[in-house]
């Protein structure tokens, strides 16, 4: 029997490059919002980078300065505690320029859901090195491949937060490289939203996502790269759950 999935009512067409993982995650978040019955009571906190293209979707959003979504989301959530507030950012936004705001929101255990797309580069500005760029990976600012002795080693944000702030509700890493992982990632996102609804505290989900444009790979090879290269460096799974509290 064929299963027909309908588009969530609040979804618009996305504006990302072909093969980009953002569109999938945008859709997953929207499905979760609607399944949880929050379609008329949510707000995205965005900042700068490809992630801010989420504003092509319907609903309330707030676009903060680069990296500051963690702080802006704090202000929104404290003002409207019953509204679902979701910070949606890239790895450069949340983990590089906005590292202070991201970590401090976790430190305060703000009752927020934070979804971070990790595509190992600064996508919007044309593929510069991010803190998540893989060792040896060529980007426009690491043209000979990332030299970790010079530039530091890849950053693991969900692990950092899970290990540093024991009181938070949830920390996990998913992937959108194949259907199985897409479905697992949706469960992670839904948990992150449910935690907020339950006022359980801070939740963060990082999602490994293909960037065919800046990886100079076609979409399928981009997914292969995630499986072969990124999974060993960035293990998938839950690093902290409410049950661990």
């Amino acid at each position: 029997m064929a299963a027909i999935k309908t588009l969530p009512t609040g979804a618009n067409k996305h504006t990302f490059c072909p093969g980009c993982g953002h569109g999938i995650v945008n859709r997953l978040i929207r499905e979760c919002i609607e399944e949880l019955g929050y379609q008329d009571n949510y707000c995205f906190a965005l900042a700068v980078g490809c992630s801010c293209n989420l504003h092509s979707q319907k609903g309330d959003f707030f676009q903060a300065a680069h990296g500051r979504a963690g702080a802006a989301a704090t202000g929104i959530k404290r003002t409207r505690p019953d509204m679902l507030v979701i910070a949606y950012q890239g790895d450069g936004d949340a983990g590089v320029i906005g590292l202070a705001e991201t970590l401090n929101a976790a430190y305060r255990n703000e009752n927020l859901s934070v979804i971070i797309i990790n595509n190992t580069n600064f996508g919007m500005t044309g593929g510069q090195m991010s803190w998540t760029t893989m060792p040896g990976e060529v980007t426009t600012t690491s043209t000979a491949g990332r030299n970790c002795d010079y530039n530091g080693y890849p950053q693991h944000l969900p692990e950092m937060i899970a290990n540093s702030f024991s009181h938070i509700a949830y920390s996990a890493r998913g992937s959108v490289a194949d259907v199985k992982h897409i479905m697992e990632t949706k469960k992670m996102i839904k948990k992150a939203l449910q935690n907020q609804i339950d006022k359980a505290g801070y939740s963060i989900v990082e999602v490994l996502s293909p960037c065919p444009t800046n990886w100079h790979l076609d979409p399928l090879k981009s997914c292969d790269r995630i499986e072969n290269e990124l999974y060993p460096e960035y293990p998938l799974g839950e690093f902290k759950t409410r049950e661990d509290k």
């Binding site: 707000c43 906190a45 500051r68 802006a72 704090t74 202000g75």
Partner: peptide, 13 residues
């Protein structure tokens, strides 16, 4: 920086 961005978020709400 965080303080002013919190204020902006709250103001927007």
């Amino acid at each position: 920086i965080a303080a002013v961005n919190m204020v902006l978020g709250a103001s927007a709400a």
